[in-house]
Nucleic acid binder design. Structure first.
Length: 287
DNA sequence: ACCCAGGCGGGCG
DNA sequence: CGCCCGCATGGG
C-alpha cells in the first residue's frame, strides 16, 4: 500500500518527539528531517510531517502494508480539539509563556506495556540514557522487523520475552538496578495483570492498579496513565515539574508532591496532564 | 574527581 | 503513616 495522507493542525513533531515521550522511546527521529519511524504491531511505521504554518500534512505507511490511519490518529491524538485544550490550560501568564514557546507539542498516546517499561527505566535516570537503554533492549529482546536506512529495526520487547529474560542480560542493556523491576513487571503483566483490560478504569482506579507493578510508584503510574492510557487528568510530578511548579506558582518555596498535585488538579482539572507536558519541558529547557 | 539524572522500595521512628 | 537511604550507569 502506498502511504496515506492525514492532516492535523498545531502539531510540532520535534517538540513532541524530543520532549521525553515514549513513541518507543523516541521513534527514530532524525532532527530536521520531519520524519520518524517506530515499531508497532510487529511492523515499522514511517511518517513524514510537512509543516505549513499551523497546518501539518502527514504521509504515513507501514512496512506490512496495512493502513496506519487509525494508528497515527490515535498516537498523535489528532481527534483532540487542540484549540479548546489550549484555552482550558491557558489560566495565567506563566503557563501561557510555556505554551507559546512549545506550541504544537502534543501528548502522545502509546501502548501501555511499552509506556510502562519506558517509565520504569526513567526513574533516577536521564533522557539520553533512557533512550539508549530502550534501544539496546529492543535490539536484544525485540524481534527484527525489517531493514530501514541500512539498519535492522526491531519491535519493542514483549512482556513474555522480558519475563523470560535473565536479569543480568537486561542489565547488560544498561538498565542497572531497574533490570529487576523490568523482569518483575514483565512477569506480573503476563501472569497477573492484563494491561488492556484495565484501560476502561477511571483514572484513580487505573493508577491504583498500575502501582501494584513492581517498580511503578506514584510518578511512573501517572506517566503510564497519561501517555499509555490517555488519561489527561494525570499530572506526573518529577523533579523538573516540582521545580518548575515551585518557581512558577509558589514563589520558589519548596512544596510537597501532594500539594503540587492538588494545586494542578484544581487549576487544570481534566487537562492537567496536557499542562504538565508544557511545564516539564519548559522547566527543563529554561530553568 | 564529583554530581546528577522524568523515583522507587524497604526499613526505621 | 512520613522520612531517609541506597541504588547502576554514564555524561557533564
Amino acid at each position: 500500500m502506498k502511504s496515506e495522507r492525514l492532516t492535523a493542525e498545531i502539531l510540532n513533531l520535534s517538540y513532541t518527539i524530543e520532549s521525553g515521550q515514549p513513541l518507543t522511546f523516541y521513534g527514530d527521529y532524525r532532527n530536521g528531517s520531519d520524519q520518524i519511524t517506530y515499531p508497532v504491531g510487529g511492523a515499522l511505521v514511517t511518517a513524514r510531517f510537512a509543516h505549513m504554518g499551523d497546518k501539518v500534512v502527514i504521509d504515513a505507511r507501514s512496512s506490512n502494508g496495512k493502513s496506519v490511519k487509525d494508528e497515527i490518529t490515535s498516537r498523535f491524538r489528532l481527534n483532540d480539539d487542540i484549540q479548546t485544550m489550549y484555552e482550558s490550560i491557558s489560566t495565567d501568564k506563566k503557563i501561557s509563556a510555556a505554551i507559546r514557546q512549545f506550541r504544537g507539542m502534543r501528548v502522545t498516546k502509546n501502548e501501555p506495556w511499552e509506556t510502562s517499561v519506558c517509565f520504569i527505566i526513567s526513574q533516577f535516570n536521564n533522557l539520553k540514557r533512557i533512550r539508549g537503554i530502550i534501544k539496546n533492549m529492543m535490539e536484544r529482546f525485540g524481534d527484527p522487523i525489517c531493514s530501514f536506512d541500512e539498519e535492522t529495526r526491531y519491535s519493542f520487547p514483549s512482556a513474555e520475552a522480558l519475563s523470560n529474560a535473565r536479569i543480568e542480560d537486561i542489565m547488560r542493556c544498561g538498565a542497572g538496578f531497574r533490570a529487576k523491576y523490568i523482569k518483575s513487571a514483565a512477569k506480573y503483566c503476563t501472569e497477573n495483570l492484563d494491561l488492556e483490560s484495565i484501560s476502561k478504569l477511571e483514572y484513580a482506579d487505573l493508577k491504583e492498579e498500575l502501582m501494584r507493578i513492581d517498580g511503578v510508584g506514584d510518578k511512573v503510574a501517572d506517566c503510564i496513565a497519561l501517555m499509555g492510557y490517555g488519561k489527561m487528568e494525570a499530572f506526573p510530578v518529577d523533579v523538573w515539574v516540582k521545580r518548575s511548579m515551585e518557581k512558577m506558582y509558589f514563589k520558589g518555596k519548596k512544596k510537597g508532591v501532594k500539594d503540587i498535585h492538588a494545586y494542578a488538579s484544581g487549576k487544570w482539572g481534566e487537562m492537567a496532564g496536557f499542562a504538565q507536558q508544557y511545564i516539564f519541558w519548559y522547566g527543563r529547557s529554561n530553568f
